[in-house]
């Protein structure tokens, strides 16, 4: 230990810093050596860095503009050949053969059938799972099930397509003889399984965000766990739960590989789940797999239907954000 009284010798640099003009004792001294708190010039290095970061942020905006621009111009040139009325209300989608017909309804119908079917499976099951994980499962079970669900949410959709074709459809064919190899039912089931982890994990987050004091308040009134969950916890977390539904539905609408592989490529306005149908996404894949010339009308159709797809998912995503923001406002 160095005795406190002993004078320490400071290194050269330190003494020179201590003696330098930069260290001044009073304001007048400071101004005398030309130091001021007033702004000097722009810090150019800082400015350059900030600008380049800002430019990166701008790229996301440019991306959106490009998406909208490409979809709009190509669709516009498509609509110079096909009337928008025929497109929006036509019931025949025969773009690749003569006589061609460009009614988008069969594709839209195919998309809706898959989406509703998937939602009918995934919403109740996903919500039940979320309730189980957030309200009933022990901490131990939770730490296992939650990552497993997150992992399942990350399985590529082409893998789900494989499941549909090799397992789900054969099993269904045993139950429903005469079922087409490509059918809407199998597609809907697989997409439902696919979006289930999304609903379960996001709804779980929403339910876990419900303050514990509300549960305790309800239990203190003599409520059972069923009543606490269904009448207090779920209604309180409802906006988060709804947002998860909307997000999952939007994913189902945009889902491509599983439906392409499972549901087939037959634009179809029928009400049966046993036949092959075609979704918007599956149609786009079908066109891109063939060798379509870039200036032909078939090439332009994919932009028109993609614009429909883009709008549908955009609306759902905006809706889900709106619902979520409402929820946030309630808690702050």
């Amino acid at each position: 230990m160095v005795p406190l009284t002993q004078k320490m010798t400071l290194p050269e640099q330190v003494t020179s810093w201590l003696m330098s003009d930069a260290r001044t004792q009073t304001a007048s001294e400071a101004s005398a050596v030309g130091l001021s708190l007033k702004k000097g010039g722009i810090r150019w290095g800082e400015f350059a860095i900030q600008s380049s970061l800002g430019f990166c942020a701008l790229i996301s905006v440019i991306t959106t503009i490009v998406i909208v621009f490409v979809l709009a111009t190509e669709s516009y040139s498509f609509f110079s050949d096909v009337s928008p009325i025929d497109f929006l209300f036509g019931t025949q989608w025969v773009p690749l053969f003569e006589p061609s017909s460009y009614g988008v309804l069969p594709l839209l119908w195919g998309t809706l059938v898959i989406t509703f079917g998937a939602a009918a499976i995934a919403i109740p099951v996903g919500l039940a799972s979320a309730i189980y994980i957030s309200e009933y499962a022990s901490a131990r079970v939770r730490t296992i099930v939650k990552p497993v669900l997150e992992l399942l949410a990350g399985i590529p959709t082409v893998v789900y397509g494989y499941f549909a074709l090799t397992f789900v459809t054969p099993v269904l064919q045993n139950i429903l003889p005469g079922l087409n190899v490509f059918n809407a039912l199998s597609g809907a089931i697989v997409v439902g399984i696919m979006i289930l982890p999304t609903i379960a994990t996001l709804s779980d987050n929403a339910l876990r965000a419900v303050p514990d004091t509300l549960r305790q308040g309800a239990y203190a009134l003599g409520a059972t766990s069923f009543e606490v969950t269904t009448q207090v916890v779920v209604p309180t977390g409802l906006s988060g739960v709804m947002a998860s539904f909307l997000l999952a539905i939007s994913r189902a609408i945009g889902e491509t590989m599983a439906v392409t592989l499972a549901a087939g490529a037959t634009p179809n306005l029928s009400f049966t789940l046993q036949e092959s149908i075609q979704t918007i996404t599956a149609y786009i894949v079908q066109v891109s797999l063939g060798d379509t010339p870039a200036d032909g009308i078939a090439y332009k159709t994919i932009f028109a239907v993609a614009a429909v797809l883009f709008l549908l998912t955009l609306i759902l995503n905006m809706l889900s954000q709106w619902v979520l923001n409402k929820y946030r406002a309630e808690y702050d």
């Binding site: 004091t213 509300l214 305790q216 308040g217 203190a220 009134l221 003599g222 059972t224």
Partner: peptide, 20 residues
């Protein structure tokens, strides 16, 4: 415990009204 809590009520530290 459910019947019990019906007879012995509780008010908590922080107000916790249900969002109803």
């Amino acid at each position: 415990p459910v019947t019990l809590r019906r007879r012995i009520g509780m008010v908590f530290q922080k107000p916790n009204p249900f969002p109803k």
